[in-house]
Design a protein around this nucleic acid. Sequence first.
DNA 1: AATGAGGGATGACAAATGTCATGCGCTAGC
DNA 2: GCTAGCGCATGACATTTGTCATCCCTCATT
Lengths: 203, 203
Amino acid sequence: MSIRLVIADDQALVRGALAALLGLEPDIEVVAELGDGTGVAAAVVEHRADVAMLDVEMPGLDGISAAAAVRRAAPSCRVLMVTTFGRPGYLKRAMQAGASGFVVKDTPARQLAEAVRRVHQGLRVVDPVLAAESLTAGDSPLTEREGEVLKAASDGGTVADIAKSAMLSEGTVRNYLSAAMAKTGGRTRAEAARIAEDNGWLL
Amino acid sequence: MSIRLVIADDQALVRGALAALLGLEPDIEVVAELGDGTGVAAAVVEHRADVAMLDVEMPGLDGISAAAAVRRAAPSCRVLMVTTFGRPGYLKRAMQAGASGFVVKDTPARQLAEAVRRVHQGLRVVDPVLAAESLTAGDSPLTEREGEVLKAASDGGTVADIAKSAMLSEGTVRNYLSAAMAKTGGRTRAEAARIAEDNGWLL
DNA sequence: AATGAGGGATGACAAATGTCATGCGCTAGC
DNA sequence: GCTAGCGCATGACATTTGTCATCCCTCATT
């Protein structure tokens, strides 16, 4: 009985290539390919998938939320996250969302099928380096609002822009940015945003 | 006689998956896989490759420079760029560096093998949407120094940081940033950096 | 020889940003 | 019932940015 696998990744080329790679394995069957997170849970149910392989960065519903949706809709289906960026915060939140495994896209291709099998057997698959990082830097020190404001700041607008988009006064925005800078250790809002981004604290 | 292909992409999983996908084609033979740009030209020569498939974003030598190196070392080898980001400036510079094709990673997987074949036959393969964009926004309006400074600014440091890293006075840095903001249309240096980045003007 | 573009710099000024103290209301924990 | 933390806001203040005029030097074009 082969493992029924659903693959979601926004880059069609990568998605197709991963499907081709895993389709070569005799014990794995790719039953669905998706380009965003919105339809994943439904596809898992429809195809009675055993494992869902999800990218974290996706348009529509992000991989973390999609993982949670899958767990709710089909508790027997395991989730394996596959991501470009090995961000501590992503790992932590993926696990909290019910993922069983977390691999970065620069692990050797040979290990991928093995990761799928392990996850299918109920084991956890986590990059050890990332797991260690996640222990020290995993939790976001930012409050929800601080995160929101910092995220709004990350594409370079002025305080006035951020205030408008977050429905806050300019002074409040500056206060949140100041707090975020203190907590992240950044000396400008841009630096703070970059640090938070790298740690997977934004989304 | 099958097409001898060299693949370079920094993400091992993607690289392996692409190799698997293309390896399924009867007329394509993957003769080498690289994780960065530095060894590409040598590998092309060593394996007498017909086509080199290069990612733009790579550690060490970036894909554009690697393309130029390949053309110098083996003029008969065609270059197909494969990239995550469809940035007009990348396309333009890739073509100037001697690439024959440019596809983004969210084109359907089926078309990839076809793109390789077309490139091998001496045809050009370019996403039409991107080609159009490249006509309007392709050329960087920034001077070399402006680009350098903007790039240095893009990870969020202060003017003092940038001045130190570029060996310039703070006033000069501010002048360059000001010029870059005027040319890109950004209202802050962060926005200018984002715009330049999106257009493929930095690197 | 003159022109213009780019690299580099200074100084002055206005606007934006970052810091801090302070205030109020709300909710959760002790 | 008190305290602490968070959301939200003001106002004042010092710094940092961004803008502009102006200068010098070099190199390529005309």
